[in-house]
Every structure is written in C-alpha cells, then in structure tokens.
Simulated scan of single mutants.
Amino acid sequence: MLENKRRKKEVATELGVSLGSINIWIKPCDSPNIKPLHLLIVGDVPELKAELKRLWAVEKQCQDQQLEIEILKNF
C-alpha cells in the first residue's frame, strides 16, 4: 500500500476491514526507525538492489498493460 501508492480506502475495502484498522496497521511503519522490509532483506548488496529495481519496473509495466487491456475491453 505504501510502496504501491494504493489508497488506504481501496485496501480496506479489498481486505474487508475498516479504514481505522488500516491506519492502525500502517502507523508503526511511519516511524523513522522502521525500514521497509525490502531494505532489510536486500541490505547493501548492489546486485540484489538492481534486480529488485528491475522486477519493480517489470511489475509496473505488467500492471500498466493490464489496465490498458481492461480499458480496451470497454471499446
């Protein structure tokens, strides 16, 4: 949600929970002492960072294409 820029309300609806629950769950993640999980796993390994960045780009491209397909289905 935070990394994917999804709206809290959208995630709450998808999970079947209240918006308040979502806010409670993500509040600890706003702490400057909490690092995103991918940083804890990848650490400072340049090869892993590069691969993760590549995978995010591929995932974004796939999402964009899926959205384009859904839009074109309406025509």
Rank of each mutant, 00 (worst) to 15 (best):
E10F: 02
A12F: 05
A12E: 01
T13N: 11
T13G: 01
T13K: 14
E14F: 00
L15D: 01
G16H: 07
S18T: 15
L19V: 12
L19K: 10
L19N: 10
L19M: 05
G20F: 01
S21K: 07
I22P: 08
I22H: 00
W25L: 03
W25T: 01
K27C: 03
K27A: 14
P28L: 00
P28H: 00
P28I: 00
C29G: 06
C29T: 08
S31K: 06
P32Y: 10
P32V: 09
N33T: 14
N33A: 13
I34T: 09
I34P: 08
K35T: 05
P36F: 11
P36V: 02
P36I: 02
L37G: 04
H38A: 05
L40A: 02
G43V: 11
D44I: 07
P46S: 11
E47K: 12
L48K: 07
L48E: 08
L48V: 07
K49W: 03
K49G: 13
K49Q: 15
A50E: 15
A50T: 12
E51I: 11
L52C: 11
L52S: 11
L55W: 05
W56L: 11
W56H: 12
E59R: 15
K60S: 13
Q61S: 01
Q61M: 03
C62P: 03
Q63Y: 09
Q63C: 09
D64E: 15
Q65R: 10
Q66E: 14
Q66L: 11
Q66P: 04
